[in-house]
């Protein structure tokens, strides 16, 4: 029912949504996913074009390097409370953008076009399967319980022997891996990348997938990504074409805003909560600042 490129984009966006799910599952509102995606995309493009690496090696590099950056950035910033982590990670994205604009290899503000198409559908299917498997096996695992504890109450988690710093870092690093993977696959699919593709707008889009779908389980973000990717297509379909002109762009923006607002106001656990057990809501979106006055 959807064109090929829409289906491919759904898979990429689902990967990104699962990437942010990993940090949200651990109570961390990180907005660094777009930046990690950009690192994966640019590194991949340069390795393919300038170094002639085989695609599998490019993918490995585009997954591992964001993980290393995540360790470096995560160690100091994961101690930040509440929205301050979101702010710090947004800043990371901006620094990355400026660096990319100024490096010679990355083609400046114009970006890199003419990246060879190397991503095939089976790459996407495999990547998505791996990501879904990872997030599915998380629930019920020792680490998954630790994540849930941190998300619910970080202070209590610490007094129960959970090394919260370690688990938050693991979540951040795994999240970076998935984002890097999405970045490199997308770059080798749609061929052109620019620094602006990995900024605030992309970061907010990824967050929107997770919030609209619901971040209480891994299915929510994936569902959110698929639905929101399909939405502009659905609106362009024949039925509606005569009613409103969804080519203009502002309507999509408007609708995204309205959907996000309605979901956050009326469905705090996202669209999936319509289908899940009632009492599971409301799961906090991310952990509120830890409190010391542990009375």
């Amino acid at each position: 029912m959807f064109g090929e490129s829409v289906r491919q984009l759904m898979a990429i966006n689902a990967l990104l949504a699962l990437s942010i799910y990993l940090t949200l599952a651990c109570g961390q509102l990180s907005l660094a996913n777009a930046a990690f995606m950009g690192i994966g995309a640019y590194l991949g493009a340069v390795l393919t074009l300038n170094a002639g690496w085989p695609f599998w090696a490019v993918i490995v590099a585009a997954v591992i390097v964001p993980m290393l950056v995540a360790v470096l950035v995560g160690l100091p910033s994961l101690r930040l409370r509440g929205v301050f982590l979101a702010i710090a990670t947004l800043g990371l994205g901006e620094v990355l953008r400026v660096v990319i604009v100024n490096l010679r290899a990355t083609g400046g503000a114009e970006g890199i076009s003419s990246i060879p198409v190397k991503t095939h559908d089976w790459h996407l299917a495999l990547a998505l399967a791996v990501a879904l498997y990872l997030t599915w096996r998380l629930r019920g695992s020792r680490m998954g319980y630790a994540f849930e504890a941190i998300r619910e109450d970080e202070t209590v988690a610490r007094t129960m022997g959970i090394n919260t710093t370690r688990y938050k870092l693991i979540a951040f690093v795994l999240s970076a891996a998935l984002a890097g993977l999405a970045g490199v696959l997308k770059a080798h699919l749609f061929r052109a990348i620019t620094p602006g593709d990995y900024g605030f707008v992309q970061a907010v889009d990824i967050l929107t997938f997770a919030v609209v779908g619901g971040s209480a389980s891994f299915l929510g973000p994936a569902l959110g990504a698929v639905l929101l990717t399909a939405l502009p297509e659905l609106l362009r379909s024949n039925v509606l074409r005569d009613v409103v002109n969804f080519e203009a762009g502002w309507q999509t923006l408007f609708l995204n805003g309205v959907i996000l607002l309605l979901v956050i106001l009326f469905l705090p656990n996202g669209l999936v909560s319509l289908f899940t057990r009632q009492w599971r809501r409301p799961t906090p979106l991310a952990s509120e600042p830890a409190t010391v006055e542990a009375t």
Binding site: Y145, E148, A149, R280
Partner: peptide
């Protein structure tokens, strides 16, 4: 842990 079941709360306790 408000969002978890009684059993899951205790399972978190077995972390150590």
């Amino acid at each position: 842990f408000r969002g978890l079941s009684a059993l899951d709360n205790v399972i978190v306790g077995t972390h150590l």
